[in-house]
Design a protein around this nucleic acid. Structure first.
Lengths: 251, 251
DNA sequence: ATTTATTCCATACGGCGTACGAAGAAGTTA
DNA sequence: TAACTTCTTCGTACGCCGTATGGAATAAAT
């Protein structure tokens, strides 16, 4: 006998299941809001101030509810986050797939990158079950369809999609870490460097970093910053696509 | 006039700087412990129970101190985490570099993967400044030396290292997410699937997922789990290395 | 009209990081 | 030696957090 199913699953798929039974006819007072409105409000806060700012109390205030009333819409904060993820993914329409395989691979990565940049708090989600909501499922189907029929076996299709998505996410994450640190500390990256580069140089002078020193300053000059995510995306994507195409060509 | 330098910087490099001035001769009572002992204890907790379990109170208890006494060693929890990162990275000796370029690229990724698996809480670190401690600097120098003199320009060297490290990290992260969810929810991945696969199947039946359905079950059979990080690492790494070599061959 | 299920919410509990200030220890100075 | 200064240790407290509990109001079912 399996344990009870996760309650958030039915909540996730609430829009695709028809009415659960003939007439629901709930008893008590009508709810003031819908689950969608609650989740949208949470997404709005997270977009603006990060996932940490989505507390049950702040969300309740935004909705004009008492703190505990949120729990009549959503069983817990973790479940709320699961709903936020799927709802946020549902906001972007999946673009049509181009004819060229390379362009399709690129599109998988760029779509992921764009979505994660639109909702950077997606990168802060941790400790919840892998998202298996309708919009994530739609997206996975779309991603797989981009590599269907090109000569990859089923496992390789999954791995290729993972590779592209994982890479795009890791670029966005590096970028996000900087913003997060800026928000937490209250000082911008530039201010931090101005305040600390002298000290850092003095400390590092006790050791020898010939290559890192040369590469670091070349990168600093080229980027006018410590890193340039956009260029890293271009470079890595080009290498990965080449690698996948070479793999197929070898068949 | 730049702002004051970050105090955690001097703490990070405390072992490579010589004595700050002739004789330190601090006044008050001697400290019972050293910063290294404090950071080691924090790493021990994090290795065992995750970064969230490293609270100032739990750490103090482990050290036999009052909660606030920890602040005489370390200015804040965030600074502690910065020290933990660099100290943990210093635990692994950087292996010698092989002769073959492909093997060197592989080693960069595998070393990163192994370290992050040894200290999974590294993946939970967020909102702190990019680590610029002595051990991270050593590692960056080592990584760059693996791609030095192979025909990449300085920027590409940095990007190649980023690509490999980012990819290895993203694999480890996918793996860690599962463990984290297991710890948070108290149910294993297998239990969750047994409890929910039926419900999930019923919900997904309302939509059509032809490719995802086929690929998902193929992957499930091959992996005996929802995913297989080890194989994803092999696959992705092979593609990336091919891509980088092709890039060089084109010169 | 009564019962029952449901919403909304006030209160409270045990956690968190850390600001503040008191007590005592170990150097420096008179 | 005595007074002063600086530093460590730590108890207390503040304002956050997620959420358990239970009471009042509401609407459907009986």
């Amino acid at each position: 006998m399996p344990a009870d199913p996760d309650p958030s699953l039915r909540l996730l798929w609430r829009h695709v299941t028809p009415a659960p039974d003939g007439v629901p006819a709930r008893r008590g007072p009508k709810q003031k809001l819908t689950v969608d409105e609650v989740v949208d409000a949470a997404i709005e806060i997270a977009d603006r101030e990060g996932l940490a700012a989505v507390s049950m109390r702040s969300l309740a205030k935004q909705l004009g509810l008492g703190a505990m009333s949120v729990y009549t819409y959503v069983p817990s904060r973790n479940d709320l986050i699961v709903l936020m993820v799927d709802q946020a993914l549902g906001r972007t329409e999946l673009p049509p797939l181009p004819d060229e395989l390379a362009a399709r691979l690129e599109l998988i990565a760029r779509t992921q990158y764009a979505d994660v940049r639109a909702h950077p708090w997606l990168l802060e989600v941790a400790g919840v079950r892998p998202w298996l909501g309708p919009h994530s499922a739609d997206r996975y189907e779309w991603q797989l369809s981009a590599v269907e029929g090109v000569g990859l076996d089923d496992i390789e299709m999954d791995q290729t999609v993972s590779l592209l998505v994982g890479f795009a996410t890791s670029i966005a994450r590096a970028e996000h870490q900087v913003r997060l640190a800026e928000r937490e500390s209250g000082t911008s990256e530039l201010e931090w460097w101005e305040a600390n580069s002298e000290t850092l140089g003095e400390l590092m002078a006790h050791r020898d970093y010939p290559i890192a020193g040369r590469v670091g300053s070349a990168a600093g000059e080229a980027y006018q910053a410590a890193s340039d995510p956009a260029r890293e995306l271009e470079y890595g994507l080009a290498r990965i696509i080449d690698g996948v195409l070479a793999h197929l060509g070898r068949r």
